[in-house]
């Protein structure tokens, strides 16, 4: 089991690394677009739309790794009011809810993806973008996040381990 979750963690990290590359490419595209335009050359027609799709990838590819590394912001104002036993139960319920919603949205995204592939759907911006490339990062992100939440559920880690000094909560 440990090995499985280690592999899943690696995969999440790989998606996050891909998102970093995407951010780097966005910067390159924007700078190139400005340079080309100011040099009086033909502007890069694809740069704006490509950047926009890059932002979509930057939003979803890091999602599983942020689950793994506790990078998604959360608050605890009701949780804090509960006794320790109840909090332990609540914690598992939170993980279950996250797994459930990730699996559900992942499956909806997957069926959208399959529909997009079979229907040959595309989006029309400055270039025609195949729609399955829009659904791909979303599908991956939700399924992989479900697995990362499963890791918490099975007790490999806990979301709520903050430094006691920082435990002001809200």
């Amino acid at each position: 089991m440990d090995k499985l979750f280690a592999a899943i963690g690696k995969l999440s990290l790989a998606l996050a690394a891909a998102a970093k590359v995407v951010l780097g490419l966005i910067i390159v595209a924007v700078v190139a677009d400005v340079c080309v335009r100011n040099l009086g050359l033909r502007p890069l027609a694809w740069a704006v739309s490509a950047t926009e799709y890059g932002l979509l990838y930057a939003a979803f590819l890091p999602m599983p790794w942020l689950v793994h590394s506790k990078g998604h912001v959360f608050v605890e104002f009701l949780r804090k009011a509960l006794p320790a036993r109840a909090r332990a139960v609540l914690e598992k319920l939170v993980y279950l809810a996250c797994i459930g919603v990730c699996l559900y949205l992942g499956s909806v995204a997957l069926s959208s993806l399959i529909g997009a592939v079979s229907g040959g759907e595309y989006e029309t911006r400055s270039f025609d973008m195949p729609k399955w490339l829009v659904f791909l990062p979303i599908t991956l992100a939700f399924y992989l996040s479900a697995l990362e939440w499963l890791r918490y559920l099975l007790g490999h880690d806990t979301l709520y381990t903050l430094d006691p000094l920082e435990m002001e909560g809200l």
């Binding site: 912001v73 608050v75 949780r79 939170v94």
Partner: peptide
């Protein structure tokens, strides 16, 4: 949110509930 779901996930769950109650159910989720 108060129970400790990360903000984004709290919105996801709320959205699913809201879509099923008020806005098209599974079509709304798609």
């Amino acid at each position: 949110m108060g129970l400790g779901l990360p903000v984004a996930f709290a919105f996801f769950v709320t959205n699913v509930i809201g879509l099923y109650l008020f806005f098209g159910g599974s079509i709304g989720v798609t």
